[in-house]
Design a protein around this nucleic acid. Structure first.
Length: 599
RNA sequence: GCCGGCGUAGCUCAAUGGUAGAGCACCUGUUUUGUAAACAGGCGGUUGCGGGUUCGAAUCCCAUCGCCGGCUCCA
């Protein structure tokens, strides 16, 4: 596959990086150095631990190599010659394995620049001097071949662009992305906090302002689900071990669950194990099974914002995006095979409706299927059901005209699924929502309904969570909107700013009125100058600041300053309230489009 | 969990072996302000926690917890 010019440049950057590393550290053993979406890296095995200082030196050496204007030369060789070249260069530790990956019959090529020669399919820029705008960014550990059983190598990341201006722009964007990092904004805007000492890592505490967002999201979900014929249920946060043995989760996921609580009843020898729930489905299955069900009850749609706990590995925690306690926009739809397509389609449509509410334009639907080689291990051993349900899902996707990519070997153990991936402002990729088919677990729970023929049948189950978890979804929204939430979600919708203390009483009366209308309003009572109060409101990212001076107080009007549009002039308080009510009720998006940058 | 880096006041940061400091925030007073920072004073730290070296440790060493950048994982 030919590389794009940018990929060629970056790939050449990684070769030049390797050239420089070998000049400075001749003992380095090279593994692999490809271009990435944002730059390039090279994986290196070396006893010496690279430091930040080393990066500076390596970068300076790379600059020299670029100035040497080395041509990149391609050389095709036989497998035997390739082995000889690798050995001659003392790079057999990883490169022989990489050579073995090249299928018999395929061309084996090396690329040479200056004294450096690397096993490489290509392609490259013609001369090293093409590499003008580049920068080494970081050092990280990376397992050889991405397998944690293998040795961990040192990975040096860098990036390169055709021009210095583009590089500068990229680096500036990285800085801008930091400013909209949800961890930083969450702290600045007082949305949530962590107390890693006494509460624990990965366990977010929601401050009142963040809780407003949670409750607005739940309101949206409840309205939407009610309209779509869902029923709400509630279940406990814990269950006995047997529940997860029945569901089959325990053998697959015990490592990801908090260790069980052992309870002994009244000093009896026998103990009971309780687990914090990591998923809601088993509880919901119990609810389905709690009553006799008829085909007339189907499709039965059971919804709950369920709280789950997952023991994520410490290194995987990341702000709100990866946490150990989470509340999920969960629901399970029990239906017949005939109903499946319509239900699955309706769920996808609900996703799209939500995405338009949040102005989420850039997303990717991933259709995850099973791997036949792993039936009975990673996936339940039901080859026919896999095929049947995967065909059904694929058909719904195609019929709905939804763009998707199909990824084998990533299904849930109980059936195929669709994940919705989005990209955060920092370019990180997240699964924000999921929609899964389950043809296996209902049977384990002996879930049945009576068919029109008075026989018993097991329903299919659709697991779906269009708004994902509060934690991840809000983390994403913070970055998506850069903290400038639409008015309906904004923790503080209106800030009243009196020009002087003389308008304080009027301000209090107005605040009380707005509050009585259900508006989230505050009054700035500081005795600062107007400019300072405006600044404070801007920094707090309040969508509307209403300035009240002598004139406004007398006319019962307000001077409206919109965060998105600036000074909008004076209107009566009544007229403003009417506009605001509409904006909230329609869940209007902010006018200044909060773009979420592409990865 | 693994590799590397980093933990100083609510926040952003300074102090490199010799008395822990600044700006912002907060509180008080003065000011009464027309669309992004008025002025003055005050409060605030067992330098993440625990050991060690030293006459003396924020600073050096060990251990531990946490965070950050990646890797692995992600129902």
């Amino acid at each position: 596959m030919p590389m794009s010019p940018l990929e060629e440049l970056r790939h050449s950057g990684s070769h030049i990086l390797a050239t420089a590393v070998l000049r400075l550290f001749p003992d380095a053993k090279l593994d692999i150095g490809p271009p990435t979406e944002t730059g390039f890296y090279y994986d290196i095995d070396l006893d010496h631990k690279f430091t930040a200082d080393d990066l500076v030196k390596i970068e300076a050496e790379m600059k020299k190599i670029a100035d040497e204007n080395q041509p990149f030369l391609r050389k095709e060789v036989s497998r035997e010659e390739a082995v000889a070249i690798i050995k001659e260069r003392g790079q057999e530790r990883y490169k022989l394995g990489r050579l073995a990956d090249i299928p018999e019959g395929e061309k084996i090529s090396f690329y040479q620049n200056g004294e450096f020669m690397d096993l490489c399919a290509g392609t490259h820029v013609r001369y090293s001097s093409k590499l003008k705008a580049f920068k080494l960014l970081s050092i990280a550990g990376a397992y050889h071949r991405g397998d944690e059983k293998n040795k961990q190598l040192q990975r040096i990341y860098g990036t390169a662009f055709p021009t210095k201006e583009e590089l500068a722009q990229y680096l500036e964007n990285l800085e801008l992305a930091k400013a909209r990092d949800h961890r930083r904004l969450g702290k600045e805007l007082q949305l949530f906090t962590f107390d890693t000492e006494d509460v624990g890592p990965g366990l977010p505490l929601w401050l009142p302002k963040g809780t407003v967002i949670i409750e607005e999201l739940e309101k949206l979900a409840k309205e939407t689900e009610f309209a779509a014929g869902y029923q709400r249920v509630r279940t406990p946060h814990i269950a006995r071990e047997s529940l997860y043995l029945t569901s089959g989760h325990l053998p697959y996921y015990a490592d990801s669950m908090f260790p069980p609580m052992e309870l002994s009843d009244d000093g009896k020898e026998q103990t009971q194990r309780y687990y914090l729930k990591a998923m809601n489905c088993p509880h919901h299955h119990k609810l389905f099974g709690a009553l006799p069900r008829s085909y007339r009850d189907l499709p039965l749609r059971m919804a709950e914002y369920g709280t789950c706990y997952r023991y994520e590995q410490s290194g995987e925690l990341l702000g709100l995006m990866r946490v150990r306690s989470m509340q999920m926009n969960d629901a399970h739809i029990y239906c017949t095979e005939e109903q499946f397509a319509a239900e699955f389609k309706a769920v996808n449509e609900m996703y799209l409706k939500y995405f338009s509410i949040f102005g989420l334009g850039k997303y990717q639907m991933r259709f995850s299927t099973h791997d036949p080689a792993k039936l009975g291990q990673k996936f339940v051993n039901e080859p026919e059901l896999w095929k049947k349900t995967e065909d059904m899902v694929r058909q719904v996707l195609v019929e709905s005209g939804i763009n998707f990519v199909e990824v084998p070997n990533e299904a849930a153990f109980y059936g195929p699924k669709i994940d919705v991936q989005v990209w955060s402002a920092i370019g990180r990729e997240f699964t924000i929502a999921t929609n899964q088919v389950d043809f296996a677990v209902p049977r384990k729970f002996n879930l049945e309904y009576i068919t029109p023929q008075n026989t018993k049948a097991t329903p299919l189950c659709i697991h779906r969570a269009p708004l994902g978890t509060h934690e991840r979804f809000i983390g994403f929204l913070i970055e998506h909107f850069a903290g400038d939430f639409p008015v309906w979600l904004a923790p503080e919708q209106v800030r009243l700013v009196p020009i002087s203390d003389k308008q304080l009483d009027h301000g209090r009366a107005l605040a009380a009125r707005f509050h009585a209308e259900g508006i989230r309003v505050t009054l700035d009572e500081h005795s600062d100058k107007l400019g300072a109060k405006i600044r404070r409101a801007e920094l707090d990212k309040v969508p509307y600041t209403l300035v009240i001076g002598q004139k406004e107080a007398e006319a019962n009007s307000v001077s409206v300053r919109s965060r998105a549009r600036g000074d909008e002039g004076v209107i009566t308080a009544d007229a403003y309230l009417a506009k605001l009510r509409t904006e909230v009720a329609t869940r209007a998006l902010p006018e200044k489009k909060a773009a979420s940058p592409k990865p």
